[in-house]
Amino acid sequence: MIALTQEKREELIACANEIKKMATSTHGYKVGNDAFGRNALMLMEVALASITAQPFGYIEEDAVKDRERLFSAQVFADEEDLPSYEFSELSYPLYLAPPVPEIKLPDEHEGIEHTEYHSGKQAGWNECLSEIKRLNGLGD
C-alpha cells in the first residue's frame, strides 16, 4: 500500500472525481460503455473509497489487546463518545475499507546560521527529506 501527503490525497480525489464526471457525462465518449470502461470506473470508485475512508467507530485499546474481549467490546461512534478515562491514543479507529495512510513530512531546513556545522546539518536534512520523497514517489 502507498502512503500519501494530504496535498496529494486532495489532488487525487479531485482528479478521480473529474474522471468520474467525464466518464459518466453525456458529452463525448462515455468510459463506461464497454467492459474495460466499466471496470475502470469501478476501480476509480474503489480508489476513492480507500482515499476518502473515514472511521465508522472507535474501540478501546484494551479490547484490541484482549482477543476474547474484542468480539464483545463496545464500539463508540466518535472519539468524544469514549468513556472519559479513555484518550484518543488509547483507542483504535474502525474502517469498512482500509484507508490509504497519510505521510506527514517536515519542512525543508532553512539555514539561518552560516557556520560549517549548520550548513552541513541543513544539507543533510534536506537530502534525507528529498530521498524520502523520492522513495515514496512524491517528487519535489
Rank of each mutant, 00 (worst) to 15 (best):
Lys65Thr: 10
Met1Glu: 02
Lys8Ser: 01
Asp107Gln: 14
Ser72Met: 07
Glu60Ala: 13
Ser84Gln: 11
Ala35Asn: 03
Ala77Tyr: 01
Val31Thr: 15
Gln122Cys: 02
Lys30Asn: 08
Asn126Glu: 01
Ala63Leu: 02
Val100Tyr: 00
Arg67Val: 15
Leu43Glu: 08
Leu96Asn: 15
Pro83Asn: 09
Glu79Tyr: 02
Tyr58Ser: 05
Ala23Leu: 00
Leu96Ser: 14
Gly57Glu: 05
Ser88Asn: 13
Gln122Lys: 10
Gln54Ser: 03
Arg69Thr: 15
Asn136His: 15
His114Lys: 14
Ala35Cys: 01
Ile103Gln: 06
Ala77Cys: 02
Ile19Asp: 09
Tyr29Glu: 13
Lys133Arg: 15
Glu110Asn: 05
Asn136Met: 09
Tyr85Ile: 06
His118Leu: 12
Glu80Ala: 13
Phe71Leu: 08
Pro106Gln: 05
Glu61Met: 10
Thr26Ala: 07
Phe76Lys: 00
Ser88Lys: 13
Ser50Asn: 11
Ala123Leu: 06
Ile13Asn: 01
Ile112Leu: 07
Glu131Tyr: 04
Arg9Gly: 01
Ala53Thr: 00
Lys133Cys: 12
Asn17Val: 07
Thr115Gln: 04
Asn39Met: 12
Glu68Tyr: 07
Gly139Lys: 09
Leu12Val: 06
Asn33Lys: 07
Thr115Tyr: 03
Pro98Trp: 04
Phe87Trp: 12
Ala3Gly: 10
Glu10Phe: 01
Ala40Gln: 07
Ala47Gly: 06
Val64Met: 13
Ala63Ser: 14
Gly28Ser: 06
Met1His: 04
Glu10Thr: 03
Leu129Val: 06
Ser119Asp: 12
Tyr85His: 10
Thr115Leu: 02
Glu68Asn: 13
Lys8Phe: 05
Glu68Arg: 12
Arg9Gln: 09
Asp140Ser: 03
Asp66Phe: 11
Ile13Asp: 00
Ala35Glu: 09
Pro101Gln: 07
Pro106Tyr: 08
Gly120Met: 04
Met44Cys: 03
Ser25Thr: 13
Leu96Gly: 12
Leu129Ile: 07
Phe87Thr: 14
Ala16Ser: 10
Leu43Arg: 11
Leu90Glu: 15
Phe56Asp: 02
Ala35Arg: 04
Gln122His: 01
Glu116Arg: 10
Asp66Thr: 08
Arg134Val: 01
Glu131His: 05
Asn126His: 02
Met44Thr: 02
Pro106Thr: 03
Glu79Phe: 04
Pro106Glu: 05
Glu102Asp: 07
Leu48Gly: 04
Val31Arg: 08
Val31Glu: 10
Leu105Met: 12
Ser72Cys: 07
Ser25Cys: 13
Glu110Val: 10
Asp81Phe: 00
Pro93Gln: 02
Cys128Arg: 07
